[in-house]
């Protein structure tokens, strides 16, 4: 025992080299561990997540830049006076159209995708549908319609009943066809994203299949028929 101790306090050169090397390795490990910890409100976000977040933000900022530029042109045209009346009329019409499309009270047309989901009866849950809708909105969907008959609006809800899936109190039969207007490529990519709609539907648990068709023109004819709001008032 004493011998072992003596050996320990008087290491050979080799042991010393090992010791120093291990010390440095430990140091490197500590540095690495520290670098992955720490940091503010983005803690817990991996590099990939941050890149994804930045991508979304950049897209949004580009969209807003275009929008602001368009508004500036409109304002300039309105102030220049020449055919301000006509421009005012056009602009008002554009705004009214946009509103009606968002509220679901007018039919809409534009580029987009047609997604067909086939699956055994009862496997498509309300949660899966909710997730799919969020994914499409995240990818920039402006108008969404289910099975050529249900026009989705802000207030739309998904639920499960003994008879099957319900959206806005209307039953959703299989196969489910989702049509969405927006950038076709972005929408298709949104659905194909790892862990997204396609991988969920084609998982063993659901055992279904998804077909995505990008189209330069998707027509959405179904309308939402809103009642007058009872509690919410313009403020």
């Amino acid at each position: 025992m004493r011998e072992a101790w003596a050996k320990f306090v008087r290491p050979s050169r080799t042991q010393l080299a090992w010791g120093i090397a291990l010390c440095l390795v430990a140091l490197a490990v500590v540095v690495q561990v520290q670098s992955t910890q720490s940091r503010d409100r983005y803690a817990g976000m991996r590099g990939d997540d941050l890149v994804q977040l930045l991508d979304g933000l950049t897209q949004e900022s580009e969209r807003l830049t275009d929008e602001v530029a368009a508004l500036e042109r409109t304002l300039e045209a309105l102030q220049s006076g020449a055919d301000a009346d006509e421009i005012a009329r056009q602009e008002a019409q554009r705004r009214a159209d946009g509103l009606a499309i968002l509220a679901g009270t007018q039919p809409a047309v534009g580029p987009g995708v047609r997604i067909t989901i086939s699956a055994p009866e009862g496997r498509i849950t309300a949660d899966l549908m909710l997730d799919a809708i969020q994914e499409l909105r995240d990818a920039g969907a402006e108008v969404i319609e289910i099975n050529d008959s249900i026009r989705l609006v802000a207030q739309s809800w998904v639920s499960e009943s003994p008879q099957g899936l319900l959206i806005d109190d209307q039953s959703v039969e299989l196969p489910i066809v989702i049509e969405a207007i927006g950038d076709p490529h972005a929408l298709a990519e949104g659905a194909r994203f790892r862990g997204g709609l396609v991988s969920q539907v084609e998982s063993q648990k659901v055992g279904g299949s998804v077909a995505i068709v990008e189209s330069p023109e998707v027509e959405i004819a179904s309308l939402h028929h809103p009642r007058a709001p009872r509690y919410a008032e313009p403020a």
Partner: peptide, 20 residues
């Protein structure tokens, strides 16, 4: 001539709303 549908404005989320 320039009047947007008030219910549409409320439902769409384009304007501020108040209520209980």
């Amino acid at each position: 001539a320039h009047v947007l549908s008030e219910p549409d404005l409320v439902w769409s989320g384009l304007i501020s709303v108040s209520g209980p």
